[in-house]
Each structure stands twice: as structure tokens, then as C-alpha cells.
Design a binder for these strands. Structure first.
Length: 581
RNA sequence: GGUCUCGUAGCUCAGCAGGAUAGAGCGUCGGAUUCCUAAUCCGAAGGCCAUGGGUUCGAAUCCCGUCGAGAUCACCA
């Protein structure tokens, strides 16, 4: 049950009754939302102002007519025109009580919707190169993508979580070389790691495994061949590392898509390029030097180019390297065509800030390859600046001095890591002070929310002690006389609960999971506030031994609060513990 | 130089596809627990929403310019 959706349709119906000529696109701009200032009422709509101009009427006049139509609505106690033409509704308490009933009935489904109409969405995230374990730089995108996927699934999309493995190309050769070096080391040689190689310890086990499997026989093979063997072992091991790291954050993908499978004779890249050629989207040409600062070693050369410019990119893009192999982008076009052919008309890619320049060409690729039928939203997660003792330091996979995702999770915990990263818009850069987050307990918003949740449980424990014999099983709660909840504090809390479904759908439409985090935080605050009111005014306590009926009604309210917090934390992938130690 | 993000309280950030008097946390100051976990709550102070224009009934929100911060810039992945 979504009061806002309910009233949006009532308002548009009323508008149509007065003015049947109104178009759907205009009506879609009509919103019912909570007014900024609660003193104005429970609901507010801009309907009259949206519609006034096209009708050639005064907004207040249109509003006045609408108000008449709501006079008979038993769910509202007052309707009035305000300001430039807002219509403010004050809800009758019975409909608020119905919200509680609805939550009790729908439980984890309260807030779910069919917004996505079951359409398939491919959410690609992480896709970190398999050249080492995950470091903190990957964490934000991982958590964001995962939460967004959950949010969209919750909102009625058929979501596939996908990871694109870059298991080919120059860096994988370097990985193979680095692993081969560790292999020599495992055989007893003293090694020195040249710069440009991956120096991390995580390749040592790969070297040992190779030594165990092959003995010294790899040394007798041609270098190139040995590198390829080492590369396979290393890639497999790195993916295991990455999956283990992700698992620490409770992140699990449905599909791991190997870039390599796109290559080769008759592979997707080839067929995609053939298709693009048929469409006239490929040509041999020479690119202009980038505007402004020209790279010193710039040289003109004829290349096989994709007409990305025709699809909104700044320039056309190369598909084939001078050695005849495909560019990364060529593979990416093929990959997204593959997604489209697998039936995805909606795609979301979560990328790091260093890929911001990649957005346009990716959109261009999707447009071209789906002939405009598919859409892609590329969400860029801005940098997380990692601070240590106030000093910023760079993270690089190639340096030895890296902070691993697993380090952070071990120190801070998966819940805090996830919540901290989600408690902020993705497109704003953020500081993540390792030392502070480590020590942050009380200031950390995740604890604040989890504490509220645990407190809700403690109310039930308390109730069991203070009102022995009170039946607060699920059926009893569902039948509680919630009509007894009439204080301003009760109703305020219920209003917030009523806003949950609307919050979810707005967040899903905008692809902004942080809104869920903020909502849950708000709800926790409201609950803590209610709790404290019981100190001054004992009639507002959750448990009143003298009044079992009211107690049961309050427990139903508390139950609704914990249900909604659980739903919210569920989307965020943060656990909801019944007790904090 | 091009492109993409961002610029809101001392600090860290929200602001819901433009709406009515701009919000929270931290910090500062002042209060609250014989009472359901003080891991909490209440109150106060603190703002030309970077800046200049534009669009309209109405702009922190949309458009353009300027300034500032970050990211990125051909065959890397």
C-alpha cells in the first residue's frame, strides 16, 4: 500500500473528471508528496499548477474545483488550497492505521513494486581486472552495484548481476610473467621483480602450485609457452581471490563473462564487426589529434574506425590495432551486443571515476548495436580517497603498498563498510579515513540504525517480562487495535513508514541506492526519538503493563518499524541484528 | 585545451525527475536517564545554496558563461 501512489491516481482521476481533455504526459507531472513543512498537512500536490497554464486558467481556481471533489473523500479530514496553488491534504487517521495493517500483512514485501514490470536488467559491476586481489578502490563500485541490483530486483525488475572478466590482453601476459617468476622462486631461484611486473605476495602460491604440478619442466619450454601456462594458473587463482573478497562483502554475481570468449575466429567481435560494416558504421580513416594539448608522440595513422560520433560520442573510435588485434573497445561493443542479444534491453554499468571518459562511447555502442532499442545507464562512482592518519596516499595494484578490500572488511566489518559507502551519493567523491572508520563506533551511522533495530527487539523482550501472558505472536499483532495509536508521536512515525514504498520506487527510478540508506537512517532517528519521549510522557511508552491493549498496538507499531528497517537494510545488504553486544 | 563529475552551516554530507520559511550528523554551547540498552534524546548558535546571467507563476534543483576542486584525454585494459 502506497498512500502517495493512491492519491496520485485519485488526483489525476479528479482532474480528468473536470478536464477530460488533459493529456497523459501532462498528468504524469502531477505529484503527490509530503510537504516540506509538516504543518501544511500530510500530502501535497502540485496538480493545479501543472495543469493551469495549458488550460488557460488560474491555478488557485483549478485547485478550488479539485478541492470540492475531495470533500467527500473519507480518507482525508481536510483539503485546502495554499500558496500559489498547492492542494494540501490532511489524512484521516484510519488510513494511517491501514498502513500498519498493510505492513503487518505484506512484511518483507512492503515496499516492493512492479515498477520494473519484470523486465530484464543487466547490472554489470566490479569487473576488476583479475591481476590481484580487490583493493579499497574497487569497493565502492562493488557495494554500489550490488545494492542497486537489489534495489531494482525489489522494484520488480528481473536483474542479472554480471562481472566482465578482462582475461586477455597485455596485462594478463605481464601477470603470467610475474607468476612465472614466482614459479622460479618456488624452485629455489633467487628472483628480482622488475618494475612493471606485479610484485604482490598473492602470486607466491601460484608459483608454488605451478612448481608442484610441473616440477622444473616449464623451464624447458619456450618462454612464451610457459608464460601462457602460468597465466592460466594465475588468472584462475586471481578470480578465486576476487570472488572470496566479494563474498566477504556478501556480493555474488550471477554471470562471470569472459572477455576471451569474444575473441577468435567466428567470435562475437568478428561477427559484431561484420554486422557493423553491413550497417555502414565502420570505415577506414584518420582521427584528428585531440583538441588542445596534443600528445608529443602524436602521429596520424589510418585505422579501422567505428562511427561513434553518429551516436553521440565526441569522436569516432578505433577498433583494430596496428598489429591487427582488436582494441578493448571493439571487444566491449561485441560484449554489449552480446548482452542485447541475450535479451537485455536495460543495462547498467558501474564504473570507477577513471572511466568517466568512457561513458559516451559505451552509450554510443549500445545505441548502435541495439538500433536504439536498448538503454544503458553508466553510473560512475567517484574516488574514495583513502586517508591514513590524515595523510592521503595512492593505491596502485602494481605497488606493494596497497590496502586490500579484505583489510578494510576485517577491520571495520562488512556491514559498516557497505553502509558507509552507501550513505553517500555515488557521484560525489568521498574520504574514507581508515583510522577514523576503524575507531568509529558511535558516530558510524550503521550502528545507529542497527541499534534502533535491536532496540525494537528489546521492546518485545521487555514486554514479555512486564506483561506476562500478553500474546504478541504475528497473528495477535496483525489484529492489534492500532486505532488506539492516536498521539502525534504515533502518527508521525506511521507517516514515515507510509513513505517507504515511495522512497523505494523513487530510488529505483533514479538508480540511487543511497536514498534507501538515508531513509533507513531517518526512520531510526524517528524511532529513537519516540523512545525518548517515553521518558517524559509515560503514556508514550511502548510497554504499559496497565494497558495491554495499547501495549499490543504499540508493539504492532514497533513491529512495523523493525520490518521496514529490515527491508531497507536488506536492500543495502547490511545485516539486521536482533541484539547488539 | 576537450570531456565528465562536483562546489549547500566550521567539518562530512542530504535535499525526493523545479514548489511554500534550505535540512541532518559531527563539532561548539545549554539541557534530559528513580524510566523499555545514555551505543539514546531535546534545545540553541551557525547559510547571499561558488559566482554572473537566462528559462517561469516559482530555481539549491533546468540552460549558458565565469571561478575553483577532482577524474580522464589517441592502438592501455
Amino acid at each position: 500500500m502506497d498512500i502517495f501512489a493512491l492519491f496520485t491516481s485519485r488526483v489525476t482521476e479528479a482532474l480528468l473528471a473536470d478536464h477530460p481533455e488533459l493529456g497523459a504526459d501532462l498528468l504524469s507531472r502531477v505529484v503527490v508528496e509530503p510537504p516540506r513543512d509538516p504543518a501544511h498537512g500530510d500530502l501535497s500536490t502540485n496538480a493545479a499548477m501543472v495543469v493551469a497554464k495549458p488550460l488557460g486558467k488560474n491555478p488557485r481556481e483549478v485547485a478550488a474545483a479539485l478541492v470540492e471533489r475531495f470533500k467527500a473523500d473519507s480518507d482525508v479530514t481536510s483539503v485546502e488550497v495554499a500558496g500559489p496553488g498547492f492542494i494540501n491534504f490532511r489524512l484521516a487517521t484510519p488510513i494511517l492505521h491501514k498502513v500498519l495493517k498493510a505492513i503487518a500483512e505484506q512484511k518483507e514485501a512492503y515496499g516492493k513494486s512492479d515498477l520494473g514490470k519484470g523486465e530484464r536488467v543487466n547490472v554489470e559491476y566490479v569487473s576488476a581486472n583479475p591481476t590481484g586481489p580487490m583493493h579499497v578502490g574497487h569497493t565502492r563500485g562493488a557495494v554500489f552495484g550490488d545494492a542497486l541490483a537489489s534495489l531494482m530486483a525489489y522494484s520488480g525488475y528481473d536483474v542479472t548481476r554480471e562481472y566482465y572478466i578482462n582475461d586477455t590482453g597485455g596485462q594478463t601476459i605481464i601477470l603470467g610473467q610475474s607468476a612465472l617468476l614466482r614459479y622460479r622462486e618456488a624452485l629455489g631461484e633467487t628472483i628480482e621483480i622488475p618494475s612493471g611486473f606485479y610484485p604482490g605476495d598473492y602470486l607466491i602460491p601460484v608459483g608454488k602450485a605451478l612448481a608442484a604440478e610441473y616440477g622444473a619442466s616449464l623451464l624447458e619450454k619456450p618462454e612464451q609457452e610457459a608464460v601462457l601456462i602460468a597465466r592460466e594458473a594465475a588468472l584462475a587463482e586471481m578470480m578465486e581471490l576476487i570472488k572470496a573478497d566479494l563474498a566477504q562483502l556478501n556480493i555474488h554475481h550471477d554471470v562471470f563473462f569472459s572477455e576471451r570468449t569474444l575473441h577468435g575466429q567466428g567470435g562475437d567481435i568478428q561477427t559484431t564487426l561484420d554486422w557493423l560494416r553491413e550497417e555502414g558504421l565502420v570505415y577506414q580513416g584518420v582521427l584528428e589529434a585531440p583538441k588542445g594539448k596534443t600528445p608529443e608522440d602524436w602521429e596520424e595513422r589510418e585505422q579501422t574506425l567505428f562511427r561513434a560520433k553518429d551516436f553521440g560520442d565526441d569522436t569516432d573510435r578505433a577498433l583494430v590495432k596496428s598489429d591487427g588485434s582488436y582494441t578493448y573497445f571493439a571487444a566491449d561493443i561485441a560484449y554489449h551486443r552480446n548482452k542485447y542479444l541475450r535479451g537485455f534491453k536495460h543495462m547498467v554499468n558501474v564504473l570507477g571515476a577513471d572511466h568517466s571518459g568512457y561513458v559516451k562511447r559505451l552509450s554510443a555502442a549500445v545505441k548502435a548495436v541495439s538500433q536504439g532499442e536498448a538503454d544503458i545507464d553508466v553510473r560512475i562512482c567517484q574516488l574514495v580517497r583513502l586517508l591514513k592518519n590524515g595523510e592521503p596516499f595512492k593505491m596502485s595494484k602494481r605497488s606493494g603498498d596497497l590496502v586490500l578490500l579484505s583489510d578494510v572488511v576485517e577491520e571495520v566489518g562488512a556491514d559498516a563498510t557497505r553502509f558507509m559507502l552507501l550513505f553517500r551519493r555515488n557521484d560525489a567523491s568521498m574520504d574514507f579515513d581508515f583510522a577514523v572508520v576503524k575507531e568509529q563506533t558511535r558516530d558510524n551511522p550503521v550502528f545507529y540504525v542497527q541499534y534502533a533495530y535491536a532496540r525494537a527487539y528489546s521492546v518485545f523482550r521487555k514486554a514479555a517480562l512486564e506483561v506476562p501472558g500478553l500474546d504478541f505472536s504475528a497473528p495477535a499483532l496483525a489484529n492489534a487495535e492500532v486505532e488506539l495509536l492516536t498521539s502525534a508521536a504515533d502518527l508521525e512515525l506511521i507517516r514515515l513508514l507510509a513513505a517507504w514504498p515511495r522512497t523505494v520506487s523513487a530510488a529505483a527510478v533514479a538508480h540511487e541506492p543511497h536514498r534507501i540508506a538515508f531513509y533507513v537512517h531517518d526512520l531510526a532517528a524517528a524511532f529513537h526519538g519516540f523512545w525518548a519521549k517515553g521518558n517524559d510522557d509515560h503514556s508514550l511508552r511502548f510497554v504499559n503493563a496497565a494497558d495491554p491493549k495499547l501495549t499490543l498496538a504499540r508493539l504492532a507499531l514497533v513491529d512495523a518499524v523493525r520490518q521496514v528497517i529490515r527491508n531497507g537494510l536488506g536492500i543495502l545488504g547490511v545485516s539486521a541484528p536482533e541484539e547488539l553486544s
